[in-house]
Design a protein around this nucleic acid. Structure first.
Lengths: 332, 332
DNA sequence: CGGCGGCTTGGGATCGATTGCAGACATCGT
DNA sequence: ACGATGTCTGCAATCGATCCCAAGCCGCCG
């Protein structure tokens, strides 16, 4: 592999000039510049990123930390991060903490010396850990808020309000909610949103069915509670749980949406692959990733957290209700 | 951030000694070694990976290139790669080519200077591109064969033979196969395997229903063909297509498995989330990723492709038939 | 015609580690 | 007691770029 010295020799100039011809063309006479460029072209020269990184103290590289790559939600976030970073010429280190928050500090530390900044999707780890991470290098949070840190999140309160509005319009007046893990940041946010929306509507009763595991299996228990409470609609923490509810209801001979309506959250691909197709809330998952990278890169460029960027980050990304076949008018 | 010089100063030794205390402890007297280690500990010193990479010509870093991170298959492969690499202390650059084979050479080139080797999951790009990639740095292929390159793949022929054996044992004698894209390497392999298995069994007719898109929607057309041909069982190219078939059959009032049995391939999570739960073939997807990293690391360690490793790679990873509710005895 | 300023260019220090080489010192045998 | 051998340590080169500083050269102005 050719280096700057080889190019210099071929072009009959010094290494300094080669470097300048590439990074600060204005400082080099056009004649020399072209000679250097031609030589570089001929040798297929590209500056060694490691050497450049050492000298500049910047690796021109980003890191991404997610709890589980097989979770479609984070797969999409990863895809978005990846796409935007690639467009900006930044390769991305991806690490999967395997749902283990205690592994995160170690991974952040491993990243710290190799990347210029990291995107952290860590719904479960505590504030303290996060704060320590940020002390080491620029960090942008995804789907998670912290007053003094840049973050991108979805407007869950609005999303869930759309859901309740939809159900209300159909005529539902007694709606069950199957919550997720108590520790989930966004789960708490959605529950709040639901209560606020219900209060605004006035004539809707929200029945808390309980807290369930955010997986297919968690939906079984939720379905049984829903039937027991006699609600006409169930709002689930996420799509997987909603699918479990659908399955369980079918098993018990309860018809969806004739007897009970079911709504999910996230709009994972599977939502369209079941019958009835699931009414759910689409969140811009790749958009979260892209936005996070935008924020991070602007931070790196300006050297500080841009207040305007921070403010616009507070303005959450919109969620969108997607109405399919699992919701309908309640039984008479 | 502390560097070797700081540690040296604190411990009252030279930088060389610091370096040696950490990388070649035997060459340093135990007294000094402990002094150095204590100093390093106190300052929280970690060798700068960039500087080390420059000097050694090794970045201690791997790359992974996949066509689509949102595809559960590649998400799992990525997870496997990630897990094994992490255990070995290698961070992983992940790039998503967005299903665009022409983007791959560029991404490989971007990686080339930054990583020690790459894992390439590229079912669609041509041999020539791959060969050029390998000229630049060590590459291990996933789910794709090339005689002179290390690769890991699944024993699809055996997997599909298990499927046909299962159907045969249930009594099916006329089995339809819904193939995937003609360009798919592993698809061709499965089709071959099916023919061979049918021949061995003797009294089974395999009806080729045609070539369909490997998505949910592709299954609709396949289902119609299956009904038209009067087969008692359908083997689909992958799970998504099988789910489409299930949906279409249900829509047409054809009962699964009473009237027709359906089998998928891959065992994606969704397979258990539908009714009837899908009989399918589980392929060790994270295992592929792990194995690929093993191969790559041994290549990097030894400096050449280990013949024994290559041979053991030829020995494909086992596929496993998972029998659920979408297969049963054919109608009388 | 001398000097000053601007434009180009090269020399060499620098980033932070690793490592060959050689010097310092101790140990051991004779 | 002296040389040989071995152990431990430091000096300095090295990886490949970037960039400060100074030098060379040109033209222009007084």
């Amino acid at each position: 592999m050719a280096n700057a010295h080889d190019v210099a020799q071929l072009a009959g100039v010094s290494v300094s000039t080669v470097s300048r011809a590439l990074t600060a063309p204005a400082q080099v006479s056009s004649a020399t510049r072209e000679r250097v460029l031609a030589a570089a072209e001929r040798l297929g020269y590209t500056p060694n990123p490691t050497a450049r990184g050492l000298r500049l103290g910047r690796s021109h590289t980003l890191g991404l930390l997610v709890p589980d790559l097989e979770n479609p939600y984070f797969a999409s976030v990863t895809k978005g991060v990846q796409a935007r970073a690639r467009a900006a010429g930044y390769p991305v280190f991806v690490a999967d903490s395997e749902e283990d928050p205690t592994a995160e500090p170690g991974l952040v530390a491993q990243f710290a010396r190799r990347v210029d900044g990291i995107v952290l999707a860590s719904p479960r780890s505590d504030d303290d850990t996060l704060r320590k991470a940020v002390a080491q290098l620029p960090v942008v949070l995804v789907s998670r808020d912290m007053v003094d840190l840049p973050s991108v999140a979805v407007d869950d309160a609005d999303g869930i309000a759309q859901v309740l509005g939809h159900l209300h319009a159909l005529g539902h007046r007694k709606v069950g909610v199957a919550a997720g893990p108590a520790t989930s940041w966004s789960g708490a946010r959605r529950l709040d949103g639901l209560r606020v929306a219900a209060e605004r509507l006035g004539d809707v009763t929200v029945v808390e069915l309980g807290s369930f595991r955010p997986y297919f299996s968690g939906g079984f228990a939720a379905a049984d509670h829903a039937v027991a409470q006699g609600v006409t609609a169930v709002v689930a923490f996420n799509d997987l749980m909603a699918l479990g509810i659908l399955d369980r209801l079918r098993g018990r001979g309860v018809k969806v949406p004739q007897d009970v309506s079911v709504v999910g959250y996230d709009d994972v691909d599977v939502a369209t692959l079941v019958s009835p197709a699931l009414t759910t809330v689409r969140v811009p998952r790749t958009g979260l990733g892209r936005r996070a990278v935008d924020l991070l890169l602007s931070w790196l460029d300006t050297g500080h957290v841009d207040d305007r960027a921070l403010a616009s980050a507070r303005h959450r990304l919109p969620a969108e209700l997607v109405i399919r076949d699992s919701t309908g008018v309640p039984p008479a």
